[in-house]
Amino acid sequence: MKHILKLHVNGEDYEILTEIHKTLLEVLREDLGLTGTKRGCDLGTCGACTVLIDGKPSLSCLTLAAAVRDKKITTIEGLAKDGELHPLQKAFAEKGAIQCGFCTPGMILTSKAFLDENLKPKEEEVKKAISGNLCRCTGYVKIVEAVLSVSEKQ
């Protein structure tokens, strides 16, 4: 069954006709063309599809698009402000925290939500915060370094 869905994504208002049983991940990728949000397991166990909903990390594969109509949704495409990259995006690139890049969007958004709540986190807290975002390439070392480097500048 289709319905008209209004979504507020990355500061833009969208109005689309789509199926009501679609997840936010599917709507972002298929209807809005925002493919920066990745589908890694589709069952909420890898974190690759993490987006921010009202600033909180959310697994878009386990979120009904219909259920977040009134929310502010931020995907990786919406993280840069006025052409200026978010410090986490820069730090991830510069510190070698990105290899294949598939976990990167979810990892960065989770880290952003976390740093917004914790100005000066300890290393162990960073690890716990990103522990739902799996990465098979980096061994997490440089990711943790990148997040901490941004928190130190906060």
Binding site: R29, T35, T75, E77, L85, F92, G96, I98, Q99, G101
Partner: peptide, 18 residues
């Protein structure tokens, strides 16, 4: 840094499913 690191950090990098 990897040449495509920023592409990957901004969601512009295209994987097959994208």
């Amino acid at each position: 840094p990897m040449l495509d690191a920023l592409e990957k950090a901004t969601g512009q990098a295209r994987f097959t499913d994208d």
